[in-house]
């Protein structure tokens, strides 16, 4: 465990809390893509199947449970509790465009052909593209609430910190996991455009709106 990894995990946790706080406080999930949140719930479900079979540490187990809970509570908020506020007309990204290639790739490029390993690989590939429905929604409506942009910032920061973690681990432990690294790089690239807008607009006190 290194400082990049722990800060990455905390940033990921903060992002999920921010999203829940936004929904809970405003009693609204306007501007949030339910499809992205379903994909994240699917990511955690398929990745953490080893929760009971492979014990790593108390930290690891607790974080997995918290991530799963956050993901499912968020989906529940969007599709049940506050579904009247859900902006379904703008959440129109076609999930099959993500799911079909991701399922195909997880069968083609993985570490071994076992159900848990293929599902783990699926979760890694899916996570790298899961935010696309959310980014698509923002580009469609042309704006995002400031708290939603904070959520996206910390979600992207988590990924960037994981890249630093992998460089560190490669240097110190000679550890590398090429599937995670390639997917992580792809995922981080998707946030670059958003990071630019975040720094040039949101941090200067302006609302994120696209021309």
């Amino acid at each position: 465990m290194n400082v990049f990894r722990i800060l990455g995990d905390l940033s990921h946790l903060l992002a999920m809390f921010l999203l829940l706080v936004k929904i809970w406080r405003s009693k609204s999930c306007a501007g949030i893509s339910g499809k992205s949140q379903i994909l994240f719930a699917l990511v955690f479900t398929t990745r953490y199947l080893d929760l009971f079979s492979n014990f790593i540490s108390i930290y690891n187990t607790v974080m997995k449970v918290v991530f799963l809970l956050c993901a499912y509570v968020t989906v529940y908020m969007i599709y049940w509790k506050f579904r009247k506020t859900f902006d379904i007309e703008n959440d129109t990204f076609r999930l099959e465009f993500l799911l079909v290639p991701v399922i195909g790739l997880s069968f083609l490029v993985n570490y071994s052909y076992t159900p848990t390993e293929v599902l783990w690989t699926f979760s890694i590939y899916l996570e790298s593209v899961a935010i696309l429905p959310q980014l698509f929604m923002i580009s469609k409506t042309g704006e995002a609430e400031t708290i939603t942009t904070h959520y996206l910032f910390f979600l992207g920061l988590y990924r960037a910190l994981y890249l630093a973690n992998w460089i560190w681990r490669y240097q110190t432990e000679n550890f590398y996991d090429q599937i995670s690294v390639v997917s992580g790089v792809v995922q981080t690239i998707f946030y670059c455009d958003f990071f630019y807008l975040y720094v040039t607009k949101v941090l200067k006190g302006k609302k994120l709106s696209l021309p």
Binding site: D50, Y111, E117, N165, F175
Partner: peptide, 10 residues
């Protein structure tokens, strides 16, 4: 050798 299949990251 490190066992990559352990997947110790979140």
């Amino acid at each position: 050798e490190y066992n990559v299949h352990q997947h110790d990251e979140l």
